[in-house]
Amino acid sequence: MMSHTTPPRADIQRASPPMGAGLGLKPEYYRDVLDVPGNDLWVEVHPENYMTDGGPRLAWLTAIRDRRLLSLHGVGLSLAGDEAVDAAHLARWKTLVDRFEPELISEHVAWSVKDGIYYADLLPTPATKLAADYLCANIDRMQSALGRKILIENPSLYIDLKGDMSEPEFLTDICKRTGCGLLLDVNNVFVTANNIGRDAKGYIDAIPANLIGEVHLAGHRPDPILGQALLIDSHDEAINEDVWALYDYLIARVGPKPTLIERDSNLPPFKELLAETKRAQAKLTQSEGMELANG
């Protein structure tokens, strides 16, 4: 196995401005996001939607980025594949990172590409030693190509795969070996705990706080056939109250972390998403206050 260096953790969040609550940016909200007063609201986009030669999306992102901190959150690099990530896709990533200089960069602990076919979903990986080696090699490729540390996001699971270790052990091992950090998706923790009978709070307790560079909050919905027994990470609903409660539990343990509200379809009026962002921001502000009070 190749050697991995462990750089200082401050590398993960590139610029020093603090990031509170942010919003997943969709074309339907470009004007609304640009017009939100102040520049505390940060935004995250899927870089795949901006890998075009030109056009209005890139122009909007340029205008919004001028006023707001930015995170690029990939969905198509296939880090957990059993083959090297696609060099052409990585080159497109590099073009965007050079152009927009995002504060945060992340991808998923999942795969979607094999033998040149893109399977348009975030496919799971077993938590095995071999799978960890594949992931580490691809994370190294991504971090080397971009010249940046990345965050990796814990998955939503619909099936329980045999493995050599627990998921927190698997993720922590990969972070230590590659120097990357974690994007902890609280909805994914909740959905997976529900789907495969895992303890959500125990999972959060097992994640080292210093590895977490970003948090995601999103909505889910029950499977149309199996109902509550199988929750789908659909990003098409408001954030569930149980997920908000788990978020409270997380920040009470790890302190305030940049937190993103994700909504990818069944898009509501902008003010509803902004209200969710403000709710997260209020919790972060309260958590900061408690940290200060406790020294």
Binding site: I159, L161, K162, L226
Partner: peptide
């Protein structure tokens, strides 16, 4: 690869997605 073979019906979610 599954801990519970009875979970196999759930794997359709990936193809559906």
């Amino acid at each position: 690869y599954l801990r519970e073979a009875s979970d196999v019906g759930r794997a359709r979610v990936y193809q559906n997605n």
